[in-house]
Design a protein around this nucleic acid. Structure first.
Lengths: 233, 233
DNA sequence: TTGAAACTGTTGCCCTGGCAACGCAAATGG
DNA sequence: CCATTTGCGTTGCCAGGGCAACAGTTTCAA
């Protein structure tokens, strides 16, 4: 467990916490480290949930499925990220989404019971953690809110523009790089891959964007944002 | 302010709090009560946000707009509900959604600065409140998650089935009643009103559901859930 | 090296659902 | 009590995008 201290110290959940505080807090959780390899299912929609996951190393993909086999990708998480905490604190006893490993790695499962109740020994540290958790939850809700902003867009072009502009803003650079391949990006935007490819091609041809594989570049930010503002018609 | 004590006591934010605790906590907030009448804008997307809203009386509608004039209805809130707390705790300094009054009422605006920092006098009460806030935020995120589940559905029929089945389950009764009219329901599901009407008509004709105005009734729950499970094709 | 599998681009067909436009009934208000 | 507005249903038209199917490329393993 001590091996992971460098990672844990940088985690949002343990921000503003001294190494000493962390050292007394951690054993309290009785958390377990689980290694995983690519393709492993870390949790499955609907299954009973008793712990929340803290990703120590590797990448995972959070997705939502319906009976039909089609999926919606919620997001990709990396080291330090938390998953399952929303459902845990909302009190539904089961995982809301499926988490699947996108690479090998390690995840720390912290029993919800241990993390939710005021800790026995280090109550001040627990206090800080709860404050951090508050912000994490708020952020998650905001991300969901933005997500809705993407999915709800009517036209393919608008969805793409919304996504690309967001990435562009976030990267602070005209050229950026998506962690998803085409199929995944399509599932992220809730569209079909061929239709997305078609529109991407059009936008490239019109000189609005350029791309090669998973490297994208916004050629004409002006026009991109125009699409978003005067969407319809 | 004392007039509102009965409402405040029942609020989720102040749950598990004694009237005495509430009495010392409230003055700390320096909150202001604002009356409103139907159609008033309580806050507007993008505007600066310094407070969170606690609805004391009346109904409001939370919605998201884009440039094109089309809107997406996030939800309808009633007495005791909180709005704006997600953005506040996420630290974006502006309102993420627009809140518009659906009837006359009163709202309590609590400055975010006052509510986020540990209170000067009644720290134990503040503790309890933060715990409540944690749960409220988690619930909001869960609701967003469900919302995504609706919007993402591809077919009109599936969207309607998802919504109706959810309402049916929530009401625990085959007959229930929506707080929205057709136009609003369409904006809630992110579809056009005529298309929705068309599909509603079909489903009524097929004997799956029945409705009159805003009163709906699930005739054949079996078939309704079938639509959801074996969606595609 | 070579085969297989994964990833991406491309094209055509067809259906769903958006949109505009209209008719009707109920509600609202002066 | 009548006029205006609001809410709901209906219809026809048309384009956007889902789907299937195929082709070219890269990756990977045997």
């Amino acid at each position: 467990m001590d091996d992971w201290m460098p990672v844990l110290k940088k985690t949002r959940l343990f921000r503003d916490m001294s190494p000493e505080q962390l050292a007394v807090l951690l054993p309290c959780f009785q958390a377990t480290v689980r290694p995983f390899s690519k393709g492993d299912l870390l949790c499955l929609t609907g299954q009973e949930q008793t712990a929340i996951g803290l990703l120590l190393a590797g990448k995972v993909m959070v997705q939502k499925e319906d009976g039909t086999g089609s999926r919606l990708i919620i997001g990709m998480f990396g080291p330090g990220d938390l998953f399952g905490e929303v459902a845990a604190f909302a009190g539904t006893g089961h995982w809301p989404n499926t988490v699947i490993a996108d690479s090998a790695g390690h995840v720390l499962f912290i029993p919800y019971e241990k993390i939710s109740r005021p800790c026995c020994v280090a109550c001040d540290a627990h206090q800080v953690m709860m404050r951090n958790m508050l912000q994490i939850l708020a952020d998650k809700a905001m991300i969901m809110n933005q997500r809705i902003g993407f999915i709800r867009r009517k036209g393919m072009r608008e969805k793409l523009a919304a996504y690309l502009f967001d990435q562009y803003r976030q990267a602070g650079n005209r050229t950026f790089h998506t962690p998803m391949n085409r199929e995944e990006l399509a599932d992220y935007l809730n569209v079909s891959r061929p239709s997305m490819s078609r529109e991407l091609g059009r936008m490239k041809h019109e000189g609005i964007i350029d791309y090669f594989k998973s490297s994208f570049s916004v050629v004409d930010p002006e026009r991109l944002s125009t699409i978003l503002q005067q969407a319809g018609h």
